[in-house]
Nucleic acid binder design. Structure first.
Length: 979
RNA sequence: GCGGCCGUGGCGGAAUCGGCAGACGCCCUGGCUUUAGGUGCCAGUGGGCCUUGUGCCCGUGAGGGUUCGAAUCCCUCCGGCCGCACCA
């Protein structure tokens, strides 16, 4: 407000005292006063502190906590954005708060808090741009977010609000990393075990070292190499996604389908680099199987199954002839071993290691011109093809996917069943990263192979009988025939050229039978076996960034890796002069990463005593990815101050342990966006399972019930050039169009956010109406799991409801109670108990939109009634308390209660009043409503039928038609079927 | 291309088990209160028709089916959203 307010303003106010809004009316000003007072009370009294069974957060006054029903409610870990929240962000937080408050009022010990996933790229980029330390900007952003969220009245246990950037927190992130590093997956036991147990096996000789030498004869480096093949966290040179534009490598999950970084949209290249990996693939089967134990949306489970991509099939070896091959075999993975007789050529991925070994010096006689790519020798052809394939971006590959390219290697392999020579190609439609990077091509029964065979004029052989009317000559086909629902043909050895005991015939077998038969035949000859393949890759776990957890790993002067002991944790993020990653031209695929931490030589070079005296070491300079801190935070919420253990077992068992309702254990409710379907949720499950295997947690899964909340969208207005204009300044032109500064603009739906200039801040709405109104509005907009558009104008509906609620209980002119002491009449009790019954069910089922509607109905009933009996007032206040806690606390206090209602008993419906005294029965004739009867809810079918048939309106409607049948569903419906 | 989810008034949505379609809210219209605006309160508010009332007909993306009865179940199509995408 400026100081040059026109004189008329205050003068008017002064001369017209009637205009002044009553201090007792529920206005934004009064709401603000009530809300800040109650927020202070809750904070001062620690209202939402949840006692633990044991440890620093145990409360002797709380009694036997372990015997109390618990409810662990979580929101997905937020990144503290520097630009503040918009009204879409707190949707899930409000919902979990409403549910948590409801649970508290139904006798649960509720753990609900919110911490911060505070390592991250934006703070680092901000640091690069401004020189401000990421910790400074991150903590400022966290403080601002805490302030914004506090205003909403969220009942969080602030003692448990951890942040991943706190050394006390990431000390345990590093500790868990070491647990994973120091374990291996015992496939026979089906679980992770300490690496020391593996070492013991090697030492005892019960498990031979790979090269057969006794373990004691191996050098330290050699032993470390062997163990590196087993450790669940390992460092290895692997083909990775290198993103020069970001200056870091990325996990597969962070790369989009068109080969760009999910953050920043920079091109991503394949590059061989030494990186940290997590052996998540060893948990593939368990990650799939245990989904069945979880209460998650089916869509999310399906996404995880698809991501892991389990497929059953067989490995088959194809012997390669020709020079240089030296008795080598190419191993392929196929899901269709039943079509082996139809394999007429093979394809290797261009980067397959065996390619160079099998390439002959010259083209075999009679090589098809189209196969050579115009090169003089196979080696030249291969080199040229590799070069063009490597130069192609993934986008180009995508576009070119329909046109198959490739080149002949000059080598032939032998089909192990038919004995026929098959040419070996390289082509980029075979990916190195999947299966064995090599396929047997069955063009008659695979669409991709068919297209390739057509392009290169390769033979085809039909081995699955077509069921769609086509003949068995693939040359006449338009595409491959790939059904499973048929029988095998043309798949038998001729009796002449194979010895009897080696013969196999698949003819006449179903696809499923043939798979088994051929797999057994191959296994019997040692040239194949049934196997399971996964799409899931090991998880790339290192990043070349500053603002992340350092690895608790050092290298000695021989380059041998050493894990730091627990006593040296945490390894703190060092100070550096320059935070920026070495980024490159986004298209410079030949660049390679340099870590920001390597710049601080004082930090990198250390002298440590790791048990054999003080020696010089170099620290690992990669940092962990953003996911690390969020992979286990649910554990630290439980025991945030525990300095001895990551979490005390008694506390873990209480909050996360398995029960009849949650067989794998886990948090009772986890609410967040569907965008974390595979990344965070898969990684967190993996870590949790490792910790379970190693005995640190009793639960098998971190999150029992998952709920995906929808997004709040908002209208976007664009000018003629297509640029968004500030949505708040757009005006309706009255003819269905919109203008901004007089210029016509177009409306469309969009996400809410700064860039689209349509963000609405929760502070704005709280200023205008109060936080309770904002909470109520967000909860009433629609079902929690559906996206819905924000509508500024509609907020007033929730505000009016609270005003009417207030007015039903307290006078707007004096602030005094206006409730009456009369007992509630029967109609009022019925309205009340029906509301209680409905709202309880809605609360438990997270259907807050209909819960609000029912509360409004009850309140409207009281408005019409003209007065509010005290007993009803108390109940309605408790009913709305989870939704609008500040106004509820204030009214509760006015009603004479000295204690907060946070732990008051939620109203329970009296069944006697839930049923109406009389219900409206609908009488239909042929399904159309013709009459309504007021009947007792206890009426029998027979009585109701008699009553219905006697009703004058029914008699008139039936007329002289014959009644054929009468369906009675007492007490609500009678349907008369006439002839 | 494959897989999944979803289509209900002017708008957001409700109908929990196959049984009164449109709860609740917004918008809009009329009335009362008010000097006025705003707030508040009351009434109306899916479409159509007329005989204006306890009235009739139509109506849940389109078409078909099952059923005494379908927004709800089944089939085909149309439209939208999401995920995966040469995964052998």
């Amino acid at each position: 407000m400026s100081e040059t307010t026109p004189a008329s303003g205050p003068a008017e106010d002064a001369t017209e005292p009637f205009r002044a809004e009553s201090a007792f009316k529920y206005t934004a000003a009064l709401a603000a006063d009530i809300e800040s007072r109650w927020q202070d009370v809750w904070e001062k009294e620690g209202t939402f502190n949840a006692p633990n069974p044991v440890g620093a957060l145990a409360d002797p006054a709380a009694g036997d906590v372990a015997a109390k029903p618990h409810s662990f409610i979580m929101d997905m870990f937020p990144y503290p954005s520097g630009s503040g929240l918009h009204v879409g962000h707190p949707l899930g937080y409000i919902a979990t708060d409403v549910f948590a408050r409801y649970q508290r009022m139904t006798g649960h010990n509720v753990l609900h808090t919110l911490g911060y996933d505070a390592f991250g790229l934006p703070a680092e980029q901000h640091a690069v741009a401004t020189g401000e330390h990421p910790r400074v900007s991150t903590e400022a952003a966290m403080a601002n977010m805490r302030r914004q969220l506090r205003r909403l009245g969220l009942g969080h246990d602030s003692r448990r609000s951890i942040a991943t950037i706190d050394p006390d927190y990431y000390r345990w992130t590093q500790w868990i990393f070491l647990q994973i590093f120091n374990s291996w997956y015992d496939g026979e036991a089906g679980r992770a075990r300490p690496i020391a147990e593996l070492v013991a096996q090697f030492e005892a000789g019960s498990r031979p070292a790979p090269d057969g030498r006794p373990w004691a004869e191996l050098t330290g480096a050699e032993r470390e190499d062997v163990l590196g093949e087993y450790r669940l966290a390992y460092s290895k040179e692997v083909p990775v996604n290198w993103c020069p534009g970001l200056g870091t490598v990325l996990a597969n999950e962070e790369v989009t389908a068109d080969g760009r970084s999910e953050r920043g949209n920079f091109p991503v290249f394949k590059s061989n680099l030494r990186q940290w990996m997590m052996r998540i693939t060893t948990y593939s089967d368990r990650l799939i199987a245990d989904l069945d134990l979880l209460d998650w949306p089916e869509a999310i489970k399906q996404q995880q199954r698809n991501w892991i991509g389990r497929s059953e099939g067989a490995r088959v070896e194809f012997a390669v002839d020709g020079q240089g091959a030296g008795g080598r075999a190419i191993t392929v993975f196929t899901t269709r071993p039943d079509t082996l007789f139809g394999a007429t050529y093979m394809v290797l991925a261009p980067e397959h290691a065996l390619v160079d070994a099998i390439v002959p010096a010259a083209w075999p006689a009679g090589t098809h011109d189209d196969w050579t790519g115009g090169a003089a020798t196979p080696a030249e052809a291969v080199a040229a093809y590799r070069a063009t394939a490597a130069a192609k971006s993934d986008v180009e590959r995508q576009v070119d996917a329909k046109v198959k390219t490739g080149v002949f290697t000059g080598a032939y392999a032998t089909n192990p069943v038919s004995g026929e020579p098959v040419p070996v190609f390289i082509a980029d439609y075979v990916l190195m990263g999947y299966g064995t990077g090599a396929i047997m091509a069955v063009p008659a029964h695979d669409h991709r192979d068919f297209a390739f065979a057509r392009a290169f004029d390769l033979p085809m052989r039909c081995v699955v009988r077509p069921t769609d009317g086509r003949d068995q000559d693939p040359h006449t086909w338009d595409d491959a025939f790939d059904t499973y629902d048929s029988v095998i043909v043309n798949s038998a050895h001729s009796t002449d050229d194979v010895a009897t005991e080696d013969r196999i015939s698949l003819d006449g077998l179903s696809v499923v039978e043939a798979k088994q038969a051929v797999t057994a035949w191959l296994a019997g000859r040692g040239i194949g076996e049934g196997t399971v393949n996964y799409r899931l890759r090991d998880w790339l776990f290192s990043r070349q960034r500053y603002w992340g957890e350092p690895f608790p790993i050092v290298y000695d002067e021989d380059g041998v890796m050493h894990a730091l002991p627990d006593s040296m944790l945490p390894v703190e993020v060092p100070e550096v002069e320059d935070y920026s990653p070495h980024t490159y031209d986004p298209y410079d695929s030949t660049s390679s990463p340099k870590t920001p931490l390597s710049r601080n030589e004082d930090w990198v070079n250390v002298e440590l005593d790791l048990g054999d005296g003080v020696k010089k070491y170099r620290r690992e300079t990669n940092t962990m990815p953003n996911w690390a801190g969020s992979c286990w935070y649910e554990l630290r919420y439980i025991d945030p101050a525990n300095g001895e253990k990551v979490v005390d077992p008694a506390n873990e068992r209480y909050w996360l342990g398995a029960t009849a309702e949650k067989p794998a254990g886990g948090a009772d409710l986890y609410v967040g966006g569907a965008e974390h379907a595979v990344l965070h949720l898969l990684y967190a499950r993996f870590w949790h399972k490792v910790l379970h295997d190693l005995g640190h947690v009793s639960s098998v899964e971190p999150f029992h019930k998952l709920f995906n909340q929808g997004m709040i969208t908002a209208d976007v207005y664009r000018d003629e050039r297509g640029f968004p204009v500030p949505a708040a300044e757009v005006e309706d032109d009255g003819h269905g169009g919109y203008t901004w500064n007089g210029e016509a603009v177009k409306r469309e739906a969009g996400k809410m956010g700064k860039s689209l200039k349509n963000a609405v801040a929760p502070d704005e709405i709280a200023d205008q109406y109060g936080a309770d109104t904002l909470r109520l509005y967000e909860m009433s907009m629609g079902p929690l799991d559906v996206s819905r558009p924000w509508d500024d104008r509609a907020v007033v509906g929730s505000y009016r409801f609270l005003q009417r609620l207030w007015r039903n209980i307290a006078s707007e002119s004096t602030g005094e109670l206006v409730v009456t002491d009369e007992p509630a009449d029967e109609a009022t009790l019925r309205a009340l108990h029906k509301a209680i019954d409905g709202i309880r069910g809605d609360m438990a089922g997270l259907r807050f939109n209909t819960a609000v509607a029912k509360a409004i109905e009850l309140n409207n009933f009281l408005v019409k009634r003209g007065s509010t009996p005290r007993e009803v007032a108390e109940q309605i206040v408790l009913l709305v308390a989870p939704l609008a806690p500040h106004i509820a606390e204030e009214l509760w206090r006015k009603l004479g209660h000295a204690e907060s209602l946070a732990y008051a008993d939620y109203p329970v419906a009296d069944p006697a009043y839930v049923v109406d005294e009389s219900v409206t029965c609908v009488v239909q004739i042929k399904g159309k409503v013709k009459a309504r009867l007021e009947v007792s809810p206890e009426i029998t079918d027979a009585d109701l039928e008699t009553l219905a048939l006697a009703d004058p309106a029914v008699v008139a409607a039936v007329g002289d038609a014959a009644v054929r049948k009468v369906i009675v569903r007492a007490p609500k419906l009678v349907n008369i079927v006439t002839g």
